[in-house]
Amino acid sequence: MPVYRCGPGRRTPPTTMAAHLVSLLAALALVVTLPSATAASSEGRPAHPDRDWMGSTLRDHESAPALPDNSALAHVEGVDVSSHNANVSWSKLWDSGARFAYVKASEGTGYTNPYFSQQYKGAYREGMIRGAYHFALPDTSSGAAQADYFTDHGGGWSSDGRTLPGVLDMEYNPYGSQCYGMSTGRMIDWIEDFFDTYRERTGRDAVLYTSTTWWKKCTGNHNGFGGWNPLWMPRYGSASGELPAGWGFYTFWQYTDSGPTVGDHNRFNGTLSRLKTLAYG
């Protein structure tokens, strides 16, 4: 029986070669299957969802925030919060004038806000009109799948007069290309898929949160949703500015992410009675 030794010009024994081959294949498989630290996985689990909230991507792409002037138009003050706000003091927000709140419920199809219960129920107990929102990752799963996930994890609606319709948060991709690597046509179809499924599940048309700049870039300024889906407009400044195509007015305006109290600050475009009407459906 030959004796095999390692070294120049020496053969490696078949059993050793097989072991090396198995190890190499295992290492290659690990490299292929490890999720990127900077992108959402194919299963829809985001890499850093606690840093993704309504408007969190705007600073990198649009104008810096500035507090608005005192508007003479009727409006209702409110906030939006997510897990990065942790446990929220709702009494302080109420005392500051906030009368409605939106809470991040989910992202993609693999993340739910660990503080959702404290935030969503806390706002309700304080007397606020509350609702939930979903941070979209359209490159990880279908619009229908994410609408179902959102509805099943806090994004539903009830006709109690204190629950607002859910919100689809469409903004710059925090994990890669701004439009998630999707054409304008595919993006429009994805959003429609989400809206159709949410309406089937809840009986309500979801609110759309998006900026005009993103909407133009990623949908080609599509004008087909304005007749049904209320608009939530983020623009940090003294006025809401140009609206996306299809909407003649905004329903909500996120005017700053650096207000005097916790959360991003928003205005409902109308009186408190009109806000209650939106909640009742």
Rank of each mutant, 00 (worst) to 15 (best):
D95P: 02
G155F: 07
D139S: 15
K217H: 14
H153Q: 06
W157N: 01
A27G: 11
R5G: 01
T261C: 08
K216N: 10
L30M: 12
N70R: 15
W157A: 02
A47K: 10
T219M: 12
G97F: 07
G143M: 05
Y124M: 10
R125C: 04
Y4H: 13
N70G: 03
T109A: 10
N266A: 03
E77M: 11
G7W: 08
V207Q: 06
Y250F: 15
G226P: 00
S56M: 09
W157Q: 08
H134A: 02
A86C: 02
G241I: 11
G270A: 02
R51Q: 14
A145V: 05
D205N: 15
M128W: 11
G156T: 04
A239E: 12
W90I: 00
M187D: 01
Y198E: 11
D80G: 09
S71C: 03
R45C: 04
F249H: 14
T151S: 12
E43M: 04
R51I: 02
S82D: 08
N229R: 13
P68H: 05
T271E: 11
R274H: 12
G248E: 10
D193F: 09
C179H: 09
T261M: 06
L30F: 14
G263M: 06
T197I: 05
S117L: 08
G166L: 10
T197D: 13
K276M: 07
A136Q: 00
G122M: 10
A19I: 07
F252V: 03
R10Q: 15
G108M: 06
A64G: 06
E200M: 08
A39V: 01
P138L: 06
D189K: 11
E171A: 03
T213M: 10
L67N: 04
H265P: 04
R5W: 09
G185E: 09
G78C: 01
W157E: 02
L231R: 10
F249C: 03
L67E: 15
S91N: 11
L168K: 02
R186A: 11
G108D: 02
W228Y: 15
G246L: 10
S273W: 09
I191V: 15
S42T: 12
C6M: 13
T212I: 00
A98T: 00
T277R: 13
I188S: 01
S211A: 14
L28Q: 14
L34W: 13
S36Q: 06
G143Q: 02
P174F: 05
H75Q: 13
F150H: 15
Y255C: 03
N221G: 04
